[in-house]
């Protein structure tokens, strides 16, 4: 298969970027999207040009490192998959593919398609944890947890922190990301203890970092590679409002 690629190139955070067009040829349908970029990059290196910088690591959809806005969709075509899990058979021979970095004020571009998602770390540092010390804990089976609760907690905990939610949201809102963590811990007795403090602190940090406001479009849920439901946003709203009303 042959493709025309329109890729966003930007030297560094300060420089202005622009699209450049590349051709890739003889790509097998079984090639993954990132392998296709590897092939392009190898060609570029041989031509003495700088390869396209893009984030990636595990290439099995779990580390959350890969990003890319492909043909207008975060993580490209196909639902519940990260960019690294997209295979070229999803495209048609001869397609033009536009590849852009995550665009969000809170995710500034570092180079080409690489962005800084440190804001997500900062939100979690504000309260996305249970304050227990190593070794100062009860037996694992001391507190039974209803299976349904543990399962729902796990649904939310599947978040890989890739940033697709904020990148795809027309409002640049990180609510799905924040909600996933708040909700996951809120469903467990261990996390309940500091639930109110957590919800307030994480929302405050999210706002401070310049993420937008959720308007319930559900685009985040549609583009989340882990299919995390906006029901967790409802729970975050509940947690936050209950905490604020008690203040």
């Amino acid at each position: 298969m042959n493709f025309t690629l329109k890729i966003w190139r930007q030297k560094d955070a300060k420089s202005k970027g622009a699209f450049e067009t590349y051709q890739v040829k003889d790509i097998s349908a079984d090639t993954s999207f990132l392998e296709m970029l590897d092939i392009l990059n190898n060609d570029l290196v041989h031509a003495g040009k700088e390869p396209v910088a893009f984030d990636h690591d595990c290439r099995e959809g779990i580390c959350g490192m890969c990003s890319l806005h492909i043909n207008g969709l975060a993580h490209g075509p196909g639902q519940a998959a990260t960019t690294c899990q997209i295979y070229m058979r999803k495209f048609k021979d001869g397609d033009t593919i536009t590849i852009e970095p995550w665009r969000s004020a809170a995710f500034p571009v570092i180079k080409d398609l690489v962005v800084n998602r440190g804001a997500y770390d900062q939100i979690l540092q504000a309260g996305g944890y249970v304050s227990v010390r190593t070794n100062s804990v009860p037996d694992a089976n001391a507190i039974p947890i209803p299976k349904a609760d543990a399962d729902e907690s796990m649904d939310a905990a599947a978040c890989i922190g890739c940033g697709a939610c904020a990148a795809t949201c027309k409002n640049g809102s990180a609510m799905l990301f924040v909600a996933a963590r708040v909700s996951s811990l809120a469903k467990l007795p261990q996390g309940r203890v500091e639930g109110a403090r957590r919800a307030k602190a994480m929302v405050a940090k999210m706002d401070e970092l310049g993420f937008g406001n959720c308007t319930n479009t559900g685009a985040c849920q549609a583009e989340c590679p882990k299919g995390i439901s906006i029901a967790h946003i409802a729970r975050l709203n509940r947690e936050f409002l209950a905490a604020k009303i008690q203040d």
């Binding site: 944890y129 249970v130 227990v132 190593t134 070794n135 804990v137 009860p138 037996d139 694992a140 089976n141 039974p144 947890i145 209803p146 299976k147 543990a150 399962d151 907690s153 796990m154 905990a157 996951s184 811990l185 469903k187 467990l188 261990q190 996390g191």
Partner: peptide, 23 residues
């Protein structure tokens, strides 16, 4: 090894559970 499981559960790791609520 046993301490690890205790530690992780206390941190809010959602391990698989049985209907009785235990691991």
């Amino acid at each position: 090894s046993n301490l690890i499981i205790d530690q992780c559960v206390a941190q809010g790791v959602p391990f698989a559970r049985e209907y009785g609520g235990l691991l």
